[in-house]
Every structure is written in C-alpha cells, then in structure tokens.
Design a protein around this nucleic acid. Structure first.
Lengths: 342, 342
DNA sequence: TGTTAGCACTCGGGTTAGGTGAGTGCTAAC
DNA sequence: GTTAGCACTCACCTAACCCGAGTGCTAACA
C-alpha cells in the first residue's frame, strides 16, 4: 500500500490540526473542518492505512490519531523542499530588535529574547565560532602589579580575554613591548599553529617564562574550547505554556537539560553548517527532549565564522512559522554582528 | 494574651515540622513527635492562641496549622540572634568547588551551581559591584582597521570592555600612545570624575574626537550601570522539587521572574551591605514570589567592592542550613576573587 | 472498486456518592 | 492550668456510573 497524494493531504490536515489544538484528531474533524469531499468513513480507512504506514499513532483505541515523529519528518521535509520561506519576517524581527546593542553578548542575549518572544517557544542563540581562527593582535593590559589581562583578537573580530599572572617588575611599557613582539610572531597564524610555535620557544628569563606560560595556557584552553561557547537562552519557561508539559516531572527534565547547557552546545555544534536543521523528537538524541523538536539555523559572519540560532518546542511545532522567523533572525544577526568586524 | 516561652517552643516545633514535611501539622503530631510533656488538647489550646496572634494559619477547619510569614520572621530573627552560624560548611563548600576557575565569570556561575547543589534551592550569585570604582588603567587594543577594544581596569580589579570605532589611520602604536595619555589623565579618578573631566575636553582633530566619544559613551553606560551587573543563576528548576510548586501556573510565574533578571537584580541591589538579609514571602515585594523566601549574604572583595549571593526557595526554607552555607560560600568567594585583585 | 451509511463496541474523562481519617473546638472533670 | 472525651467538619480517596467521541467492520451503493 503506497502513500498517495490523498493520503498525504489527509496527513497534512491531521498534522495542522494537531499542531493547533494538541488534542488527538478524529476522522469526523478532518472530514468536516477541512473540506475534502470525503466522508468520515473514508477518512477512517485512510487513517487506518496511515497508521499502518507508521505516520499516525493512536493514544488509545477510542481516541483520535496523533502524528508520529515520522509524520513530522515528512511534513518538514516537504516544507523545506517547497521553499516556504518566502514569507518574510525580516521587518518584524527588526521591529522587535529595536534598540542598539553593541556588545556581542548583548546582541546574543537580546536575540534569544526576541526569538522566544516571536515564536513562543524556547530560543537558543549560540555565539559565533570560527573553524580556524587566525590571530590578528595579541595584547597585554596591566591589571595590577602582578597580573595582566591578555586580549587576543582574531580575524573573526572575536576577542577572548583572560587574566594571567606576570612578574611584578613588568610595567605598562614592558608589557606593550612584549605584546608587540608576540603579535609580530603570531599574527596571521591559527590558534593551533601559534600554540605549536610557542611550545618550541625556550625562554630563559623567569618573568618571560611566566608570561609565556600564561599565553600558552590560555591558547590551550581556547583551542579545546567547546564548553566556552556562549549560549544564550530565551523563554525557557515558555515550554510550560504547552499542555504536553503540564506534568511537572516532564517540565523538570526539560528545564534541567537547558540548565546544564553542555548537552545543548554539543547538539548545536554537531551539525555542520546546514542552513536549517530540524530534529524531531528522538532525533535530538537527548532522552529528556524526546517529545520536543529542535529547529536550528546558522548565520554567517565571514567565511569561517558562523553561529547557530534555534528554537525548542513540542514536536507539534509550527515549523513553517519557526523556519521563517529563524531565517529572518539569521540575516539580522549577520547584519548586526557583521558590521563590527570589518 | 502574651507570647510566652512555651508558646514559642510549640511554634518552633510546628515550623520545624512543616519545613520538613510541607503538610499542615496537627496538635497530636506536636504532642507525640516533639516531647513537650503536654497532651494534644493543651497544644490545641496554645495553637488556637498562636493563630489568634497571627503566627499560624489554618488552610481549612479540619486541617492542621501552617506557619504564617510572621512566624517565619520570628523564627529567623531568633536564628540570627542566637548566632547559629557556628556550624561550619566551609570545608564542604571547598570540596564542591574543586577545580580552579580563573575568570570572574566562571567563578560566579560555578558558585551559583555549587550553591544550588548544596541547598537544593535556586541560587543567585551577583558579581561584585563597586560603589566608587577608581580607574587604574585604560587601554585601547586594535581589533580591526576601524575599531578598537576599550579596556578599563579599576581598583576593584574589575575590567569592563567594549568595542568602539576609531579612525582608520590609527595603528597599534598610535592607540597605545592615546591609551597612555588617557591613563595618565584619568588614573586614580572615579568613573564619574573621569566622565566630567572628559566632557570638559575639547578635541579638535576628528579622529581624536571619535575615540573620545567612544570612551565617554562607554563610561556613561558603565556609570548608570545597574542592568549590567552580572547575575548567575543555579538550579532554577529546583523549585519544581517542592510540592508547593507542583502547580504549573505557579511554577511559570516563578520561572518568569528568574528569566527577566531585572527585578532580581534590583531586589539584590536594594539592600545595603547587610551581612545577611532574609525576605519572607510578601517581603520580597514581588507578587510571583509571595510564597518564596529570599535569603542573601554579601561578600567583600575590598573596602568598596562587594557582591551578593542568595538562595530562593519556598517560605518553609531550611533557614539555618541556608544561612550557614551562604556564610561559607561568601568566604570562599572572597578568597577566590580576592586573590586576583591585588 | 472505491465510497458511504449504519451500527456495535471501546474506553478515557467527568460526575456523584459514600466512606475514611485527621484534626478541631468545646465541655467537663481532674 | 491541664487533660480526656466527644461531636463535628471537611479534604481526600475510591468505586460506580454515565457520556460521548471515536473506531472498526459490514453491507449497500455508484
């Protein structure tokens, strides 16, 4: 028994209805509300087929049907293919964004808020991450007599900074000299290259060694830097708006996952640079999210720098809307963050 | 009818029991579980008095009594007076803290996690905030051809940074020269003093003006800088462990307050530098938290820099435990953050 | 062969009624 | 002032019940 056009139309109607109402949808509803020119009996037959094909589940015998993950998958694939993204939320996103946010961090967290506000789901925004960042400048700023702030600027325009200890006899000028020297040596290199170079250097003076150790230590930590990626969340409590999560236990599971951002970051990083990805239920790979869908999009700042934005909600998500909004938001972020970098 | 010692002992027993079980406690329970040498009938009489005095509430006529906010207030005041804080959680805090966290931000967020883990409540940790910060160093680091990173180091050891636009003809050395000049001029001043000084300066060259504008703009934003204080949360979903929040609507309200950190920050900032403050239920001033208590403590880095840590939980909180843990954590933070600043 | 009407059946959810027990307030005796 | 006893209240639990939405199946129809 193949999947024909009529079955697909019925399935689509079921999904649409379920997304809207969250209650199992029966044959009568489809026959009446969505004019198919078919009686409920016929729909029933088709629904029975669709269930056999694995697109529908039945919570219990005398309830209507609900779409399975497989059904959503089909639905979404269809959506993506048909290029439904022409609907334009760009203006709306801009409206919501409003005020000028200057710092990367501000933009990120504001974006998360706007995204959650517009979608009513939980939003994720991950700060840009370069695949192979090249060092541009490296500078030490005195903080106290024994410590300095190490600032590294890369071609992604991204700065990473940390405090390192330095000898007490290094004043501002000395630090600047060292900074110049390091910049000259390392400029243009990737982080890993720089690390290798510095490992080779033998520094005789103890204070020079201390600085070097600090720099190496920091590069090291930046290099294996998965946990450090900034992740902003918005509308974490939005999930409670949905009846699927009126059970406190489930809600707790969900919120716990959000709290320990690690799993999320991993999830978001593990997806190349696809324009959009949609993970439905079990596809997320996180047990607590088995009734959720995660829709993500990437935004690009430069050739090798990109970040991720996404939305988490119940599997019965308004995929079309969400995809369109993500699209607009991605562009907006590219604009906002891109301008600062050149 | 006055409040005598026996009434107080009974009240204390009721509070202890209710904190533990969250179910209304009856006269029989008190008479049996806590050996008072009194029959349930006597306890009943006393309880009736306590209710009249406003220390007890009765959910409905045939249920036990639960402590009112007023009762908790009495309980906590007693606790604080009696200097119950000798019990020492310092070692335990250190254990949990474990690994070295170097950056301020790391320490803050880790502290929030440890605090929530140890107390099982929701934890707040606010980054240190100086009343009158003095500028120590000010430096510009080139980021791209048209922008630079402005780093300001203050005597609290706290750095604030932002990206400002600069003329395209300023190279690293030129920026360093400007930095030196600015540092010389502004070092030792407070932020507001510096701001005033710079407003007086007339800069003729356009590129100098651009830099100046950037610096002024930034100082401005730091000056009125209440929203920017870093606030880390830990264990936000812990609240769901408590039966008082098994109602999803209530939980949503609570979580929403946490999400828009503004109210919390305001709340935390509005309390001088008391060693401890305890706000019970309505005392928080936030409707959504009317069934919660907020216990806070301050930790000091230097004379004019202090931060706040706190715990939010149901009004029936284990105040003694929480106060003791906050105390230990405060000291730990002073240690961890203090060392970097000198 | 596909569609439809009709019908018996299922089962979750809401409602009602009754029983249970914890807890109270009051009174009278100690 | 304390206690024992007793009647009373009321939230909570359970079982029984009904209702209705929805299904699957069958037979008739186009």
């Amino acid at each position: 028994m193949p999947m024909d056009a009529r079955k697909f139309r019925i399935l689509q109607a079921i999904i649409d209805d379920y997304i809207l109402t969250a209650i199992p949808v029966g044959s009568r509803t489809i026959s009446k509300k969505y004019e198919m020119g078919l009686s409920s009996a016929t729909i029933r037959n088709e629904m029975s087929d669709l269930e056999e094909l694995g697109y529908l589940d039945q919570p219990h015998v005398s309830a209507g049907r609900i779409p399975s993950a497989k059904a959503y998958r089909l639905y979404v694939d269809q959506l993506l293919q048909s290029g439904i993204l022409r609907s334009d939320d760009t203006a709306s996103v801009k409206d919501h964004f409003g005020s000028r946010a200057r710092q990367m961090e501000d933009v990120i967290s504001r974006a998360a808020q706007v995204l959650s506000g517009m979608t009513n789901y939980t939003a994720l925004v991950m700060s840009p991450k370069g695949r192979e960042l090249h060092i541009r400048t490296l500078q030490l700023v005195p903080v106290s007599s024994t410590s300095a702030l190490l600032v590294i600027v890369t071609d992604g325009g991204i700065m990473r900074d940390t405090v390192i200890r330095v000898g007490s006899d290094l004043d501002s000028d000395a630090l600047y000299a060292i900074s110049r020297m390091l910049t000259e040596k390392l400029s243009g290199r990737t982080l890993s290259e720089a690390l290798k170079m510095l490992h080779g250097v033998q520094e005789s003076s103890p204070r020079g060694k201390q600085v070097l150790d600090g720099v190496v230590g920091f590069l090291d930590s930046v290099e294996g830097d998965t946990a450090k990626t900034k992740l902003a969340l918005g509308g974490t409590s939005n999930i409670l708006n949905f009846p699927e999560y009126s059970d406190v236990e489930k809600a707790k599971g969900f919120l716990s996952v959000l709290e320990t951002k690690d799993k999320l970051i991993q999830l978001l990083e593990n997806q190349g640079e696809m324009a959009f990805t949609v993970r439905i239920g079990p596809e997320t790979g996180i047990p607590e999210l088995k009734d959720c869908s995660l829709v993500t999009a990437t935004y690009h700042l430069s050739d090798n720098t990109h970040g991720t934005i996404g939305v988490i909600g119940p599997t019965r998500m308004q995929y079309g809307r969400v995809l369109s909004i993500l699209n607009a938001m991605g562009q907006q972020l590219t604009d906002l963050l891109g301008q600062d970098k050149e």
